[in-house]
Design a protein around this nucleic acid. Structure first.
Lengths: 141, 141
DNA sequence: TTTCTTATTTGTAATTATTACAATTTCTTT
DNA sequence: AAAGAAATTGTAATAATTACAAATAAGAAA
């Protein structure tokens, strides 16, 4: 499906900027930050403003077309994959990896009973990724 | 146990500032931010610097005496409860509530198999808390 | 097509959280 | 008390985010 229609499905009026940003999100599953997206699209859209990237991502989240990850304390990251899945943040390289979610967690949605209206579920792990771990072993020698 | 000894247990050399900050964390289970802690202790310790609050919380986390929550995109929050438990962030009032964790998640620690060294597990929920929900209902009328 | 209206984008400035770092103070040890 | 180390402080720098008004683009009506 074209990104144009993809956006329409989420009731988002497509524009050059919005399509480019969503395209980037869909093609780069690295959970990019605002800055990464902005930097990457500067060539393609030389007039692009960082404010637009902020506005657009906010719009995507509001329309359910993307989710915001607050796992990294330094900045917020975005993910076009809105299916429930877990994330692993490497404390060394700050890369964010996808992991299967604990499906048990979905039951939490029924926690509504307690009066808490759960709209989002996040499962975050933090530690050292295999790539950094082996790197660190090498440096020990 | 006195906070003095409590800190020593975590191999943290006690000081007026560190004791005051840990006391605050232990007595206020509201997952305060740096700013909240700083503001609250300004009266007690008039010379307190915000940098000290930053340094101290960093130290606490390094020594395992507190955990850092990155659930709120606006700023980082701290929790003296280092037992595995889940958190609920109300999108309206930004309060953070404690919830029992899904114990299944602990198994993730053995995810080491895949080469990922999991040091921290976080379970976050976001939505509307009962207090805000009833408030919003009232305002509808 | 031209005009009017609305939505989107842009750029700048303001705000806020966090970090860097040197100077000062406090604590320990002698 | 003096010397050395550790902790604290204050200021300045950095970086992320937001506010907002002006400019541009898009769409509807004439």
């Amino acid at each position: 499906m074209r990104t144009y229609d993809y956006l329409l499905n989420y009731d988002i009026k497509p524009s050059v900027q919005r399509i480019a940003i969503m395209d980037y999100l869909l093609e780069h599953r690295t959970h990019p930050s605002i800055d990464e997206i902005y930097m990457a699209l500067c060539d393609e859209i030389p007039t692009l403003s960082k404010t637009t990237v902020y506005n657009t991502l906010k719009l995507f989240v509001e329309h359910g077309a993307a989710q915001m990850l607050t796992i990294d304390e330094r900045n917020v990251n975005y993910d076009a994959d809105i299916q429930l899945h877990a994330h692993f943040l490497c404390k060394k390289c700050n890369r964010i990896y996808d992991f299967p979610a604990n499906r048990e967690e979905e039951k939490v949605h029924s926690m509504n009973l307690n009066g808490f209206d759960v709209e989002e579920i996040h499962q975050y792990y933090k530690g050292i990724c295999p790539s950094c771990a082996s790197q660190m072993k090498k440096e020990e020698n």
